[in-house]
Structure formats: structure tokens, C-alpha cells
């Protein structure tokens, strides 16, 4: 059980990276982005493209760091992929959502458009990479370390948690201490007030998509390192992401972090009693329970 909780924390960190972005987009731009899971997939596959394609062509050595399963190639691919998906998210905003905003479309039209985006990204990934399970380093043995309480944990997983907290820490500093971060929080709090105060909402929207996309990409890559890559991985993350976002109150990034860990732990612990394929259903049931008991989430005002 202790082991499942530790695995749940790792999975929860990955969910949290997606959920924070989803929550930011939901809170600031004001619609449920059904393509957010696909941003995770896009990040994972973009990193795969760099690691197995571009970097092997440039000639960056294909070594690994000691007991970890990745090396320099991944170190370079990681920020590149985050930036790539940030631009992808901004691109979709420019070509689709901005046009819908200009027409004053209702929030559901945005959500439907994002559903279309999600299918478009997924289809492109399947067309290019197929729908098999892929790995960054196929066939590599990944031994686990024994730590107290009889928990087996892979060194990769420790690094994953470290990166999750590093990214959340950076985001925290950005939101608290920079002008743009403060403007974003203000917009999430009250859009009209922010407009009156002279905040340029179009710029905020671009930053929100960028940050949301980059964090989702990071989550996708970390899941690829921890488990595997699959064209439908992001789609299967969508319900856990929404569950975490709603649990932690929409628009609240610390709530999304807590929500992510809660959902991740619940999903992993459930595998002690249920088939692992039901993880998604576990997230769904938790979400329905939150909607019934406290729809504003744990950090929401009553």
C-alpha cells in the first residue's frame, strides 16, 4: 500500500502539471479545454521526435545518466518540447479561439472547438507515429531502488517528482513576483475589473496558453519517461485532469496541484482492489462525488 501511494504521488505530479494549465485556461480564458490532454501527448511525441530523430542526426551522444533511463538528449529535448507545445497552444488560439472571441461565441462553442482541436492533434499523431506503445529508450532495463518500508522506486520517478516541484515552484515565483503573473491572477479573479485596470487581456491570453501548453508538455514527457507513450495517452488523462481541476477549484493552481496528487494517489491505490484499466473510471467517480458534495471544489468559496 505504501508503494502504491508513492506511485500515486508520481502519477499525481504528472496529472498536476496538466491540471494546473487546464485550471489556468479555465479560470482566465473561461472555457473547458478538451484539447489539454492532447497537449500532453503532443509534448511527449515532440520530445520523442527530438530524442530519436533530430538529436541522433545532430550527433548528441545517446548515453544515460548513471541509473536513470535518459541522458543529454532528453535534457535538451525537454525544454524544446515545452516551448514547442506552448507555441502550438498559442497557434490554435490565434487561428481558432481568437476568431470565436471576435464573434462573441458562447463558452460552449469554444469547448466544442477545443474538442475538434483535440481530435485534430490526436489524428496527426496517429498518422505520423501510429497507435502503438512507444518508449524513449526501448528495451532498457529499469531497475528499482529499495527504500525503507519495502517500497521499490525507480530513480526516474524521483527525478520526475523533483521536476514537478521545480516547475510548480517556478510558476509560483512567476505568478507572485512578475507583473505579467500578477496581471494573470487579477484576470482570473475578475475579468472585468482587470480590463478596467488597463490590463491587456489578449497578451494575458497568449501567456496563459503558453504556460498551460508548456506545463502539459512537461507532464506528457514525464509520463512517457515513467510509463510509455501512446497516441491516446492524453485523451485518457482528460478525465483525471478535469477531476483534479474541479477538486482543487477551477482557476486555483495550488488547488490543481493538490487535486492532482489526490487523484493520482486514488487512481494508484485503487489498483489494489480493481483492474488497473479502471483507473480512469476511479477519477470519474471521484469527480461525480465532488460535483454532488462540493461542486466549487475544496478551495472554492461557498
Amino acid at each position: 500500500m505504501a508503494e502504491l501511494i508513492v506511485y500515486g504521488i508520481v502519477l499525481g505530479g504528472i496529472i498536476a502539471l496538466g491540471a494546473i494549465g487546464l485550471s489556468l485556461v479555465y479560470g482566465i480564458i473561461g472555457f473547458a479545454n478538451f484539447a489539454h490532454g492532447e497537449f500532453m501527448t503532443a509534448g511527449a511525441y515532440l520530445a520523442l521526435f527530438m530524442v530519436t530523430g533530430v538529436f541522433s542526426w545532430i550527433g548528441i551522444p545517446d548515453n544515460t545518466f548513471g541509473i536513470l533511463s535518459f541522458g543529454w538528449r532528453m535534457v535538451f529535448a525537454f525544454p524544446f518540447s515545452m516551448a514547442g507545445v506552448a507555441f502550438l497552444a498559442i497557434f490554435f488560439d490565434r487561428v481558432l479561439y481568437r476568431k470565436l472571441r471576435a464573434k462573441n461565441s458562447g463558452p460552449v462553442m469554444f469547448a466544442m472547438s477545443s474538442l475538434g482541436t483535440s481530435f485534430i492533434i490526436r489524428m496527426i499523431i496517429i498518422i505520423v507515429w501510429g497507435s502503438d506503445y512507444l518508449f524513449y529508450r526501448p528495451g532498457l532495463m529499469r531497475p528499482a531502488l529499495e527504500v525503507p518500508l519495502g517500497i521499490k522506486i525507480r530513480p526516474d520517478q524521483i527525478v520526475i517528482l523533483f521536476i514537478v516541484f521545480l516547475l510548480v515552484g517556478l510558476l509560483h515565483v512567476f505568478l507572485q513576483d512578475t507583473k505579467m503573473g500578477k496581471a494573470m491572477r487579477a484576470t482570473a479573479d475578475n475579468m472585468e475589473l482587470a480590463l478596467i485596470s488597463g490590463i491587456n487581456t489578449e497578451r494575458i491570453i497568449i501567456w496563459t496558453w503558453g504556460i498551460g501548453g508548456a506545463l502539459a508538455a512537461a507532464g506528457g514527457i514525464l509520463y512517457g519517461i515513467d510509463v510509455q507513450l501512446h497516441a491516446r495517452m492524453g485523451w485518457h488523462f482528460l478525465i483525471p485532469l478535469f477531476a483534479a481541476t474541479i477538486l482543487g477549484s477551477i482557476g486555483n493552481i495550488y488547488g490543481a496541484l493538490v487535486g492532482g496528487f489526490a487523484i493520482g494517489i486514488a487512481q494508484q491505490v485503487s489498483t489494489a482492489f480493481l483492474l488497473p484499466t479502471y483507473k480512469l473510471a476511479v477519477a470519474f467517480v471521484i469527480m461525480i462525488l465532488i460535483l454532488l458534495i462540493r461542486p466549487q471544489g475544496i478551495f472554492g468559496k461557498g
Binding site: 473547458a32 478535469f242 474541479i246 480512469l280 469527480m287 461542486p295
Partner: peptide, 12 residues
Amino acid sequence: DYLAIATLGIAE
């Protein structure tokens, strides 16, 4: 949006 998320979940 909540109905959308819930119906998506129930289908899966």
C-alpha cells in the same frame, strides 16, 4: 461544461 465533462466520463 460540467455536463460535457460528466458525459465524456460516463462514455469512457
